[in-house]
Design a protein around this nucleic acid. Sequence first.
RNA 1: GCGCCCAUAGCUCAGCUGGAUAGAGCGCCGGACUUCGAAUCCGUAGGUCGCAGGUUCGAAUCCUGCUGGGCGUACCA
Length: 584
Amino acid sequence: MADWNQEWIDKIAQTLRETAREKNIELGDVESRLKGGKPPKADMGDIAFPLFPFAKEFRSAPPQLAAEVAGRIGTTPLGRAQAMGPYVNIFLERDQIVSDTLKSVLEKGGNWGHNESLSGRKIMIEFSSPNTNKPLHLGHLRNDALGESSARILKANGADVQKVILVNDRGVHICKSMLAYRKFGRGETPESSGIKGDRLVGDYYVKFAQWAKEDPSAEAQAQEMLLKWEAEDKDVRDLWKTMNKWTLEGIGKTYEKTNISFDKYYYESRLYKMGRDIILKGLEEGVFYKAEDGSTRVDMSEIGLDTKVLLRSDGTSVYITQDIGTAISRHGDWPFDQLIYVVGSEQDYHFQVLFYILKKLGFDWAESLYHLSYGMVNLPEGKMKSREGTVVDADDLVANLSELALEEIKSKGREEEVDDAQATADAVSLAALHYYLLQVSPKKDMIFNPKESLSFNGNTGPYLQYMAARICSMERKAKDMGWDTTLTGVDGTLLGNDEEWELTNILADFPRTVEQAGRDHNPSLVAAALYNGAKVFSRYYHDNPILNNENPAVAKARLQLSLAVLQMLKSGFELINIPFLAKM
RNA sequence: GCGCCCAUAGCUCAGCUGGAUAGAGCGCCGGACUUCGAAUCCGUAGGUCGCAGGUUCGAAUCCUGCUGGGCGUACCA
């Protein structure tokens, strides 16, 4: 719709100026004050221009002015203008737009929505950031869903995207699992126990906590082990390698199951010493300063913040030092235009500081660093607490969803219909999970209601899948009847009803939605657009015979429209990481 | 204490850079399967958009203050 917006802005502006000239009225800038919107109801037109802003200059009431402008424009090849109260409403010429839109969808093939708005941009996006001492939990799932989806959306906008993961594989918490394993493990392995590697290591992390309650020396022992690790003690390093491998294999399976992937793995164990040289250089150049206590600091008073320690008095680095070094080294690896960090909002301050420092160091790319900050995932009972064992395990959740989806398939007697019931159930569970996590704006905290997330009705991922599957079903039926089901475009005059017009608009708007989702780093926009499309379509095909239409030409035209909607759904599913199913 | 974020139907969430009567889903109640798959569709009820000011022709949207909640505020990561 916005495509035609500008033409109307020009037209109305021109008309306003003409009118003003005749009345000897001085007009300021007109175009910037003309903003097209969508009328509240479809039968009120396609674009609405409020004329309030011009009332004063014309010294006439907005409705009067609207009537005058609409009267002068009247009917044009693009459509007609009609005054409705203080608004000039535009009724677009539908036939041509319908034909053009379907033709565009056809030409894009399976990539409807893709565009070139970020073409030529190199964007690196970091997400997930797992620890190697325990399995992924619900919080990671939101992070992964956001990261993966954002990456796909950016790619669809033409950007060159590199997905990156930073594995937190060092530190005391890692040593705690190792220590407990050494004490209680008796050589147990994922193979010998049949327990998934990340879970096994996580179990020992829990065991450590229990043991530490009884033995006050436990914490000190963990610290001691960390020192040995840093001194590259062979035994400790060997155990570390073994257990990290177990965890990463386990976590890798979770990624595989949830369709999450990375182009490059970074490991903290290899990066944690980075950044020190940069800080020392910055100190020489006067970007940083040496505090009285001997620590090296940055002064952030110019952005209203305090000071931040970058090197301790003993010269060793702190966490943010590593992040500074890592960012610089990554830019060396792959000179990005933008680096996006998908990290929870509890680290807002950290990134504010990090970005400020990189700017102070004079890196031009620091301007475009972006923290995709997202809110916490809470449970209906409150926060997830590891101490209280209320943390929702990622694998368990996905398995539960699959199980329920399988029951659903069985209860509907569709085991024979779908080729592989378990695979279908898995696909449905992913749709439920990812849609549930992505429908919420990233910034907001959200409540994860397990019961609701398991629902396959209403505003859910499976509902979207179902609509796509229904269209596929029609497509199969059409093929059986010997119809040509390739998307070939259509004569718009055959698709004239309001629902067809609405679907056309939804199709036409989709690329702009994808663009905005990329610009705002907000996959929920795509999710909402898909839901809207599916919902309007489901009403459409419920109320209007498509294949069964008595007029074969109309039947084929409607099928074409349905197939175009299917293209949008398929393309959108890819963007929010929900699997497409031809049958379910 | 200071800083950042959030507040919309009983619940979970939309509402784009301010525009006409604030929308979905769930739940409740009531309808629709001899008809393209009922994981569907349709309808009813449900709102002082946290409160109070301000800007504007016009505010859920922008500004200020307040209240309530969340998260930060390490020579932790």
